[in-house]
Each structure stands twice: as structure tokens, then as C-alpha cells.
Simulated scan of single mutants.
Amino acid sequence: MKILVIAKGNRVVDTLAGELRSSSVDLRSARTARAVFESLRHIDAVLVGFAADDLAAGSVGVCRAIRARSDVPIVALVDTPETGRHVLALRAGVNEFLCKPYRAAALVARLDMLRRSRTREPDPPDKLLLDDVTINFRGRTITVAGRTLQLTNRQYQILALLAEHYGAVCPKNALISRIWGDSWYGADQSLYVHINALRGKIGRPRVIQTVRGEGYRLASPCAMAS
């Protein structure tokens, strides 16, 4: 597994290198933006070190720039499980968070799960038509009133799973388990943020309906018009 580590100093990189030395991990680092972007095609995941006061500063900008170029999984290394401040990072493209202490075995297992989730995608129908919204799963696009929107990898996974359950509720636990894994810290909050981001991108809040206490479902055309 090839992992790119981005941190302000060498301490995080050196610590992780020591912990992962015996885990068959190809750990890489990048000191410039150009080096980061050139590495994206050749790696399986990115670890970004966040300082305690940095969740709204430079590291978020780095994640946003990476996400604009690639759907590679991004894991933020954080000091404390402060979920409220992590929303900014999620919106910038971070997939998950890992809090201290970083256990090498657990880190490798979770990164491997993220890597496999990029290719273990459900098999939805080619298209779904919901009023003036067309979800094209083959092209990974959404057309809203003739305007085409691009989907991120995670947004595609969520919509594909909802399409698998079309006509019924997709349980929240099923979404989390299939996309994040049962034990991922912050998966519940991450799902909430991604659902809201999808609704905002589509501009039709009723496309994805919340079923309180159960999960989410795609609306029927008649529900869209009501």
C-alpha cells in the first residue's frame, strides 16, 4: 500500500514511519504542492496532519486542492475528537479522521478498507428520473433542469446505495457499514455532512428524504411534485 503523508514538520512523518516500518507500507512524504499533486496518481491514500488550531487553516486548503484533482481517500490525523470543528475538513474533502494514539495495525486496516471501498461499488441502474432530476450512474453525473453536475466518488457511492434500495428506506447503518465500515470514528457525522452536501449540490432537498430513526431514501416523482 502506498501512502502519502503531509504534515507541517517531520515529527508526524518520522513517527508514522517508525510505527509502519514492519507493516509493508510504502510511506511517502511531499514538501511542496507540486510534489503532492504529482504523487496523487501513484498512491492509495493520503494522511494529512492537522495541528490543534489548524482545522480551519492550511491543512483544509491542502485537502480541498487534493480533492479537486483526485478522489483518493484522505484521512486527517488529529489530536482530539472534536467533531464540530471537523465539519470544515469534511467539506474540504476529508473522508475520515484518526485520533491519537495512532495504532499502526488499526491504521493500516482502515486505510486498506478505504482503498477497497473505492472499487467495491454497488451496481445501480444506469439512470433514475426524479421529476426534473436525472441521476446518471454510468456517467456519475446528475442533471438538474438541464444543468449537469459532477459527483465525487463518495457522493456516487451514497446515491448508488440509495438506488439499490429505491422504493424503500436505505438504513443509515447500512450506508455507514458499506461505505465507511462499522468501526470508523466519525462515520455518522460524515454521512450527515455528505448527505447535506448532495442536497445542496442538487438544489432539490426532496430528492433525498430523511426517514427519522431509520435512514434515507430517494423520493418518487410524485413525492417530488407534492
Rank of each mutant, 00 (worst) to 15 (best):
A76N: 10
S59T: 12
G186Q: 07
D182P: 11
L98C: 10
V94N: 04
L88H: 09
C222F: 14
D14W: 12
L16C: 03
E121D: 04
L4D: 09
R67P: 13
I3W: 01
I202E: 03
I142H: 14
V144P: 09
A163L: 00
G9H: 07
V48R: 05
H86G: 08
P205H: 13
A174N: 06
L47E: 05
V12W: 09
C170F: 05
S59W: 09
D53Q: 01
E214W: 10
C63P: 06
H42F: 10
A219V: 03
T152L: 13
L107P: 12
V78L: 13
V211P: 13
L114H: 15
V5P: 08
L151R: 06
A168K: 05
T148S: 15
T141S: 07
L151Y: 13
A104K: 10
T119Y: 03
R103L: 14
Q209Y: 06
L161W: 07
R103K: 14
V12K: 10
A89I: 08
G139P: 05
L27D: 07
V211Q: 01
D54S: 12
R28Q: 13
L218V: 00
P81A: 04
G61Y: 09
V133N: 11
D71I: 04
V87C: 08
D131Q: 05
P124Y: 00
S183D: 12
Y156V: 06
A163G: 01
R115H: 15
I66N: 05
L162C: 10
A145E: 00
F37L: 06
A65Y: 13
V94K: 04
S220W: 05
R69W: 05
A7S: 15
I179H: 07
Q150E: 03
W180V: 02
V169D: 00
K100Y: 14
R11A: 03
R178S: 07
G213D: 02
D54F: 05
Y166C: 09
N10C: 04
S190C: 13
G18Y: 04
R212F: 15
W180Q: 02
R118D: 01
Y166P: 11
R41H: 11
